[in-house]
Design a protein around this nucleic acid. Structure first.
Lengths: 184, 184
DNA sequence: CCATAGTGGAACACTGCTGTTCCGTTCTGG
DNA sequence: CCAGAACGGAACAGCAGTGTTCCACTATGG
């Protein structure tokens, strides 16, 4: 099935994943019918790709974390001062939009995904501790929580008030960097 | 238990509300059976007090916002510099625990509760703008979002990692005040 | 003591979602 | 053009949560 000819299966599968991210991000309790409809696909077809709901969610997490990893690469989190790298990552994550809130909401429901936090993220924060750009009293996991909740707040602000994407990003960046900056 | 004639109805009702806050905060999709069980009450009795699920949720929001208001009073948000008052409010909110995350999660699902933010909160932030303790570029609604998401992150940190209540509160306070502090 | 309010359990119908099967239609490559 | 893959719709059973009814069981105060 996979092999040389991508066929239309890959496209359909991707369409379903994209739609699922969008729909489930806005309403984690959405039905499979809603997802299928959003993907312009029959519910039967959806079941053909993901026989059970859990399999869809698993594939969804995989897709989301893949996008997250790509964002981390783009942000070059292993370069420059810790706080600067964090700001770049923040911006990249911000652009992920729905993916972010999906993971954020699922983190609540389906906890226990990871014990600590990303490899590179941890290193970035420690680098920030060393170069004095991130308060050493803030553990990496805490900074990660901080970043995520801040991004979610921004996404929420964007959705419920008529704020522009650009302004919201500015606010998020300002507050994140302000929060991690060492005390004077 | 309470006053002269209140009967046991008031007690039972309160027990249901308390249990509902606790259960629904941890799992917003919990069934009424779960709530009844947590309240040590038959499902029939629960339906006697709240005939439909929506009525329970409404009463729950009322209860939660009442506790929120009381916390705001205790924090004396109309006294002292804006940032200091914000810190006091942050601490009081932190102590609310489950109530907070319940409202936070419901804010997601049942949006459209309020157009802006609290009366007193708005005044507090503006006072902070004026006295230079809160960055004037941060709108009150944003600060409110910031505070809530930060508290939720703290609650999450507390639940998933073995952090102590005291340390977590310190981290939250540090990050909130750092985030709203004007740039140097 | 006994009438009554408060309660809990069992049973029921109803609803919405899920997972599955079957079949007819449409698209596509050889 | 034609065979096979991909798709969509309809129908079905199963399941869980909900809302309701009915009845039996405690308490408690008058």
């Amino acid at each position: 099935m996979t092999s040389v000819h991508t066929g239309s299966r890959a496209r359909t599968r991707q369409a379903i994943l994209d739609a699922a991210i969008e729909v489930l991000a806005r309403n984690p309790a959405a039905s499979l019918g809603d997802v299928a409809e959003a993907a312009d696909v029959g519910r039967t077809t959806l079941h053909r790709y993901f026989p059970e709901r859990g399999e869809l969610l698993t594939a969804l997490r995989a897709e989301a974390t893949a996008r997250l990893d790509r964002a981390a690469v783009r942000a070059r989190i292993d370069e420059g001062p810790g706080a600067t790298a964090l700001a770049r990552l923040c911006q990249e994550y911000f652009d992920l939009g729905d993916v972010l809130s999906l993971l954020f909401l699922e983190q609540v429901t389906f906890e226990g995904e990871e014990g600590g936090c990303d490899e590179g993220f941890d290193a970035m924060v420690r680098r920030g501790h060393a170069d004095g750009s991130i308060d050493p009293e803030l553990p990496p996991v805490w900074v990660q929580n901080l970043l995520w909740s801040q991004l979610y707040a921004g996404w929420n602000y964007l959705a419920e008030h008529g704020a522009s994407r650009h302004d919201t990003l500015r606010l998020v960046l300002r507050c994140v960097s302000g929060a991690v900056r060492p005390h004077p």
